[in-house]
Nucleic acid binder design. Structure first.
Lengths: 193, 193
DNA sequence: AACAATACGGAACTTGGTTCCGTATCCAAT
DNA sequence: ATTGGATACGGAACCAAGTTCCGTATTGTT
């Protein structure tokens, strides 16, 4: 269980320059995503990292793999926050609400991440899958606890809820008239029995 | 008020071949969107219509304009259904629910339309604007009536609701585990005071 | 029938992801 | 310290997909 150990040495049996480059790439990509959104051209990331595009593709077979790698630890944090919140909150419903808030924060602060997650582009299937694999079980546990306590309707699938929330975050921050949080709140309110 | 008159003669003072081509293009595009989603390449539409790509761009300056043209009458239908439903339904809330249902049907049956609507791609801004211009007032009227009747909270912006619903429809039909309608229902349930 | 005006086709250009391969770098064995 | 082979690198080249351009064809009017 837990993350596949991303310690200081990202991969054990690799050449020193390769490890160095992988790290530069992760840093450069994170910066680029922040500055220009997840859709930033690969070439620009390569320039930022001071590396050729070929190098990107050797480390990350696809643009998406790079995106996944960059956000992996944040997804892990979200996943780990679930049980913590459940233990610390007064009621399961409160924990669920807080956890969803966390998830929304994560999505709306990364330009274009929510979009990418739901894109039908085959390249993003991996990203989608990763998020879901990691977060659906956490959401399921929270939802289950709340349902057992009679705080939410028992017929809501964690997968659907997560995707719904993710979808609502699309385009947030691009338009001041659209406040994703408010919509998510509405959706969560709709969970009550 | 109403549509800018798309009669049999799409534009009055044009050469006969131009009118013919514009119609072929609309038909071909509609078929292509249905078969391969709104993301179908322009070139394929050109082939289907038996026309060069240049011809597409003369009639529709941008891919998006073509999309707008194809869906225009369906958007009009949705817009016109609003007042009709309001008059025919028992309560404003019922009308709102039905109208939203209609909107969802529209979006989920067009592959990729919902995605395109929320895409941050500048090219789709026109599509987005068109939908909103036409539908926000209709939604506002329904929402207002329901709020006045005390059936929904009075603090929900029509624009936000519409975008929220649109967002929830993204990816519907691509994944059997995700039923957009169920999520929208949840969202609407969250509207109750 | 002939001439503008209008519209057409599709090659060429642009942008962005991905692949390929000749070259440079690393490191383990000597 | 040297060196040979494995490993990794850079970036030119390739493949879509949207869009532009312009020489050619069609239309309708005189």
């Amino acid at each position: 269980m837990g993350a596949p150990d991303r310690g200081p040495q990202t991969s054990a049996r690799k050449r020193a320059d390769a490890r160095r480059n992988e790290q530069s790439l992760l840093d450069a990509a994170a910066a680029a995503f922040l500055a220009a959104g997840v859709d930033v051209p690969v070439r620009e990331i390569a320039v930022r990292a001071g590396v050729g595009v070929g190098t990107i593709y050797r480390h990350f077979p696809t643009r998406t793999d790079l995106v996944v790698a960059v956000y992996r630890h944040q997804v892990e944090a979200a996943a780990e926050a679930g049980p913590t919140l459940l233990a610390a909150s007064d009621t399961p419903y409160a924990a669920l609400t807080r956890w969803i808030d966390l998830f929304v924060d994560f999505l709306v602060t990364k330009h274009g991440l929510a979009e990418a997650l739901q894109s039908d582009d085959a390249a993003f299937a991996a990203l989608h899958a990763y998020f879901l694999d990691r977060l659906v079980p956490v959401c399921a546990r929270l939802l289950d606890a709340a349902a057992t306590a009679g705080e939410v309707r028992p017929d809501v699938a964690p997968y659907e809820l997560l995707r719904g929330v993710g979808n609502l975050c699309i385009g947030a921050g691009r338009d001041p008239r659209y406040e994703a949080r408010r919509l998510v709140e509405l959706l969560i309110a709709g969970l009550r029995p």
